[in-house]
Every structure is written in structure tokens, then in C-alpha cells.
Design a protein around this nucleic acid. Structure first.
Lengths: 226, 226
DNA sequence: TTAAAAACCTAACACTAGTTAGAAAATCAA
DNA sequence: TTGATTTTCTAACTAGTGTTAGGTTTTTAA
């Protein structure tokens, strides 16, 4: 009875996608309703049939961006066996997060670039969503630390900020056709979990060990390329 | 003979600082000359005595931001003994980079948020500076890898992107009065170089090892707090 | 086919943007 | 104190902003 929104829903999504793309390239104030309308094959006035203001548009872009990430990561974690290790959970979350932000690149980039410039109430509403996501990550890391998988001398709040900061930065340089998401996720997990350093450590300044002589894939089987 | 620029230089710097702060909070298009003028205790028209356009202003902010970082990091690396280890170099670069971007927080944040929205020629000019900085980091990482200090199975281009992405993100959450720069730099170096994982590795799912039982500071002496 | 509902467009509104020309004030050299 | 130079201000211009009211077209339901 109350479900016929056919064309309207399509246009609404088209406008939102257009908005994300334009906000991404021009920032909050630099984006005009006329630009968005152009991108969505509409006239500026018509946008107001779907969204009641520019602020509601940016708010929707912001919320949808983080929401997509939360759902993707949650689903990936839920699909893990309940006895999965901390390492597996972190690797999984990293890959899912990467997937989500790259699939929704326009939204993620728009958010990244526009977040600090948006009217305060909108920003605060979106911030609540982001905080809940941060809490989820914090849980994963703390779990692994409590189990003894992760070192106990690492401030996990800081670690989380590093990880999410680095992850979100990928959308700035990731180009389809270049390195695959899997490749990036693996390398990133490797750096974060095992570090850059060789397993043998580095206490003295030795002369160039033959680098070929190292076990290439230590713990989790490290599938090479794909 | 050609050096008397006294008051002019002061005003010029004041305008630039004001511009960085306003660009930071409002983005490129959202920043008006009148806002900058207000922040610098001037009238909008007067800015044009020092800078010939809004574009020249943003360009100056962008360039100065990255320039400060380059100089600081270079100086810190040059101060190291020539036989310094890769680990030392990376730790030093991380700390210097953090110092620089936090000291110039307005410029760094402005750059982060505005870079993608700025007219193309300006962005490309600034990109050249940033690329040279990236090359420098790449050199540090590759050196350490060649010496055998860093694992050979890590894609260092990706690693560099992660490191710089995470580092630059710190300005978004760092608050003076909270954790010190040293603290942040140490934790960050720890995660990136040694990883999150305990030295003992994690091949099976063991029941909660007593976390207190770990050697707290493995390689480089890890000074706790300060 | 017809009339109502949904989707879109046009034209305008009050307001603010970057920029400039020329006048006024502040500073400096003599 | 002068007069010249440097620095700042005032007032204005054109162009473009988000938003809206009311009219047109398209779609839908009968």
C-alpha cells in the first residue's frame, strides 16, 4: 500500500551519487546545487523534490559512506569461525574495510575531504556513527592483546588511529588496474601485524645479509599475487 | 640595498597564517578573502597588496606546509651518525615528521583537506614537492631492506603510503595536553617496525598467556612515558 | 482515455563572492 | 617638519549562490 516509490527512489540515488562525486572534487562550499543537478541530469530546482536542502544532501553522503563500511566489516567478521585468531580478525577487518571504501570511493573521499567543513550538527551526528565503528575496532585489538597474541606494551588506541588513518588514506591513491585490493590488504596486514623488520631482529649493524635467504611467508600462508 | 621589507614581511606572514587556519576550517571555496582578512586584522582589499589572488594564497599555504616537513625531516636525518641503522633512520624520520606537521598543524590540516579541491595547476606544482619527499622516504626504506634489516617480501611503495597516510592523519586527532609527540612517535614506530604481534608469534590458539610475562622492550630501548 | 499524482522545470529572490581603482593613513628618509 | 613611499581602507562591480513559488510535463491508476 505504502510502497510505490519507483522512479523517485532511482532519481534520489542518482542525485546522491552525483552529490558524492561533486562534493569529493569541490568540497562542501565549493559544491553548488547546479553542479550536482548537472551530474544527475536534472535542473537545480528539482533536487529539492528529493532533498530539502544542501545540508541534508551532505548529511546523507556522510552517513551512507560510513554505514557501508560498518556493514561490510561486520558481515566479514561474522562470517569468521568463532574461534578465529586475533590475527585473522584483524586481517579480515582490514580487507573488508578496504573493499568497502574503494567500492564506495566517492563517498569515502567526499567524507574525508568535507568532514571538517560541514556544519557542526551534521558533523556531530555522523561522528556518532564513526565512534561506534572505532569502538568495534578497539574490541578486536583488545581481544587479541588479552589473548596474548599482541604485545602488551602497545597503546591500542593509538594503534587503532594509525590503522584507520592509513586505511582511509588508500582511497587517495588507489587506482583500479593497479594493485589489487587483496594485494594491498595483505601488505598492509603484514606491516601492521608483523612489522617491517626481519624476524631475526637487528641488534648490530651487520653487513648486508643476502636478502634472498629469508623465509618468505612466516605465519599465515601468504599467497603471492593473484 | 634591496632588503628593507620590514612591516610588509610581518603582515605577509600574518595573512598566510590566517589563511591556513581559515582554509583548514572551511575548505578552498568555503574560505572567503573577508574571513582571512578578519583573522589577520585587515580589510579584504588589503590582502591584495601582499598576495595577488586567492589562488596565490592557497598555493603558498600548500607549499609552505610540505616544505616545513621536508626541511625538518632532512635536518633530523642529517644529524644522525652516518652508520645509523635503518631502524634508527625510520624512527627518526617518523618523529621529525610528526613534530613538523603538529607544529604546523594549520598548514598540514589545510593541505590535507583542501588539496583535492584546488585548481589543477596549483595542485600539480605542490605535488612535485610532495613527490620528492616521498622519494626520500622510499630511499630510507629501501636502504634498510637492502641491508637485510627489513623483510624482503614487503612492497615498500605500499608500506610508504601506509606510513605517510597514518602519520598525516595524526593531525586530525592530536591534541596538545594529551599524549606527547614522543609517545605517539614511539608507539607508531613500534607498530610499523616490529608489528603488533608478540615476538613469540601465534601459530596456535593458545589460552591467554599471562601478558606480563613478555620482554617489554625488545630491540631499541623503549623508554616508557616521559 | 482521463484525471489525479508524481516528477521536473523556469524564473526569480536576496545575498555573498573575488577583485579592483582610487582615496586615506601610516611609515620612513632627509 | 617635510615630501615620498609603503601600507591599508572604502566602495563598488559583476558573477554566481541556495532556495522557492508556481507552472509544465510525465507517469500512474481507473
Amino acid at each position: 500500500m505504502t510502497k510505490k516509490l519507483a522512479k523517485s527512489a532511482i532519481s534520489q540515488k542518482r542525485v546522491l551519487d552525483a552529490a558524492a562525486k561533486i562534493f569529493r572534487d569541490n568540497g562542501y562550499a565549493g559544491t553548488t546545487m547546479r553542479m550536482i543537478a548537472d551530474e544527475a541530469d536534472l535542473k537545480a530546482g528539482s533536487i529539492y523534490y528529493h532533498y530539502e536542502s544542501k545540508d541534508e544532501l551532505i548529511s546523507a553522503v556522510l552517513d551512507l559512506g560510513i554505514h557501508a563500511v560498518i556493514e561490510t566489516v561486520k558481515a566479514a567478521l561474522d562470517a569468521l569461525p568463532s574461534d578465529a585468531s586475533g590475527r585473522q580478525r584483524v586481517e579480515t577487518a582490514i580487507r573488508a574495510h578496504l573493499s568497502a571504501i574503494i567500492d564506495n570511493g566517492d563517498y569515502t573521499l567526499a567524507t574525508r575531504r568535507v568532514f571538517g567543513q560541514v556544519p557542526k550538527p551534521i558533523r556531530e551526528k555522523n561522528q556518532r556513527l564513526r565512534s561506534s565503528y572505532a569502538t568495534m575496532w578497539q574490541g578486536i585489538l583488545m581481544d587479541a592483546q588479552k589473548r596474548g597474541e599482541f604485545r602488551s606494551d602497545t597503546d591500542l588506541s593509538l594503534a587503532r588511529l594509525f590503522i584507520l588513518g592509513a586505511l582511509n588514506w588508500t582511497v587517495e591513491w588507489f587506482k583500479p588496474g593497479g594493485r589489487s585490493i587483496d594485494e594491498v590488504a595483505r601488505t598492509f596486514s603484514g606491516v601492521v601485524i608483523d612489522g617491517l623488520v626481519t624476524d631475526s631482529g637487528m641488534m648490530t649493524t651487520t653487513k648486508a645479509q643476502p636478502p634472498s635467504k629469508q623465509k618468505a611467508a612466516p605465519r599465515t600462508p601468504r599467497i603471492r599475487a593473484l
